[in-house]
Amino acid sequence: MAGLRLEGLRITRAGVPLVALEADIAPGEVLSVMGPSGSGKSTLLSAIMGTLAPSFAMTGRVRLDGCEITRQPPEARRVGILYQEELLFPHLSVGGNLAFGLPRAVRGRSARAARVAAALAEVGLAGFADRDPATLSGGQKARVALMRMLLAEPRALLLDEPFSRLDAGLRVQVREMVFARARARGLPVLLVTHDAADAAAAGGCVVELG
C-alpha cells in the first residue's frame, strides 16, 4: 500500500471536466504526466497538494502510504513540491530557507543549524548558510530548493516542470540529482512536463493529458 495513489481523480471547473487520472506510483518510482499548457497539469498538482482554488471541484481520492489525504489541509499532507522557479523565500538567508523546512521535532538551535549545514554540504554548498538567496546561481538555487523540500521529510514529491528554466548542461545535472535523491529516499514522484526528454530521463510510466 506504500506510495502515492490517485483513485478516480476527476477535476471539473463549472461542470466542465478538466483532468481525470487513475494512477499508482510506488516508492522510488516516477510517473510523468505530459501535455500542452492549459491541459490541467498544474491543476492536478494543486489537487494533490490540497491547494485547489475554490472555483474547481474534485471527486475521487488521493492516498499516500495507504492513508487517505484528500480531506487534509496542505500543510499536513507531507507532499513536497518543486516548481519551475525555485521560490526561495527572499527575506530569509539560504540557511533560514532550509531551517523553515526542517521539522519542529529537531530541537535546539545548534542541532537545527547542524542539520542545515549537513544538508548544504550534501549538495556541495557547504558554508552557504548565511548567504542571501538572491546572490546564488541558478544551479545553486535549484539545489537549495531541493534540499529545503527534502528536509521537511515529505512522503511524496511533485515536480512542476522544475527543469524547464535551466540551460541544457545544468538541466541534466539537476535532473539527475533530483531523481537520485528521490529514489534514495524512496519517494513516489509525479512529474509534469511538456518536455519528452524529462519524461525519458525519469524512466517511469508516461501519461498524456489533454
Binding site: 494543486s46 497538494m49 490540497g50 491547494t51 489541509p73 496542505p74 500543510e75 499536513a76 499532507r77 507531507r78 507532499v79 513536497g80 513540491i81 516548481y83 522557479e85 521560490l87 523565500f89 523553515f100 523546512g101 521539522p103 529545503r148 523540500m149 521537511a152 515529505p154
Partner: peptide
C-alpha cells in the same frame, strides 16, 4: 506559489502569513 511551497514544507496558514 510561495504559500504552496511553505504549506508543502509543513507551514499552516498562520505561519505562512506571519513568516512568509
Amino acid at each position: 506559489r510561495h504559500a504552496s511551497v511553505a504549506a508543502a514544507l509543513g507551514a499552516g496558514p498562520g505561519r505562512v502569513f506571519r513568516q512568509v
